[in-house]
């Protein structure tokens, strides 16, 4: 069972940021539950967790960041997208910097990984905060200019992507589901 976590304050944003992820999960034939950032969730019931992004002006999920604390001890796989990337970065004590990026940009893959192959991809970005550097707990996997736009948590199958793979890079989500 896959857990999809919405970080959207407004249901109308879920149409844009959660429904496309759910459709990929459903197309791949997996069962799933959708939960919201302000709910307490028993994550041990799930084999994989997908944390979706939200609107550029939406930071309400930061008021409920403690609801994600259990992820630190979670044994399954996690993919954090945009807001989900930011949550994972903070959970592992990394400081986000203000980097506003809207649109399609080239991304360099800097480390082999099971989610995306090749040296370069085009990806759709929509964020205000991201990472330029990481601590020893995170391994950079891809860069957009000076931004670390994809990382893995050392020793865990936790991944963060600052861009939106559901738009131009669906294979990242599909590969994550089949990890």
């Amino acid at each position: 069972m896959i857990l999809v976590i919405s970080t959207c304050k407004y249901p109308l944003s879920e149409e844009e940021f959660v429904r496309p992820i759910v459709e990929i999960v459903r197309d791949c034939g997996f069962d799933y539950h959708v939960r919201r950032y302000y709910e307490r969730i028993e994550i041990e019931d799930y084999s994989k967790v997908l944390i979706c992004g939200t609107a550029l002006r939406d930071f309400d999920y930061l008021n409920h960041i403690n609801n994600f604390a259990d992820l630190a001890e979670y044994d399954g796989n996690v993919l954090g997208i945009c807001a989900g990337y930011q949550i994972l970065a903070m959970l592992f004590s990394n400081a986000l910097e203000e980097i506003k990026k809207i649109g399609v940009y080239k991304v360099r893959i800097v480390r082999e990984n099971p989610l995306i192959k090749g040296d370069e991809i085009r990806a759709y970005f929509l964020h205000r905060y991201a990472l330029r550097s990481v601590n020893e707990k995170l391994i950079p996997l891809a860069m957009q200019d000076e931004e670390i736009c994809m990382f893995k948590v050392k020793g865990r199958d936790f991944y963060g992507v600052s861009f939106h793979p559901e738009v131009l890079n669906r294979e990242i989500i599909v590969n994550f589901l089949y990890l």
Binding site: E15, E16, A55, L56, R57, I102
Partner: peptide, 13 residues
Amino acid sequence: DDLELWCFNPLWL
């Protein structure tokens, strides 16, 4: 974003 307005695209993808 320039106008500090929320943007909603309910038909996206």
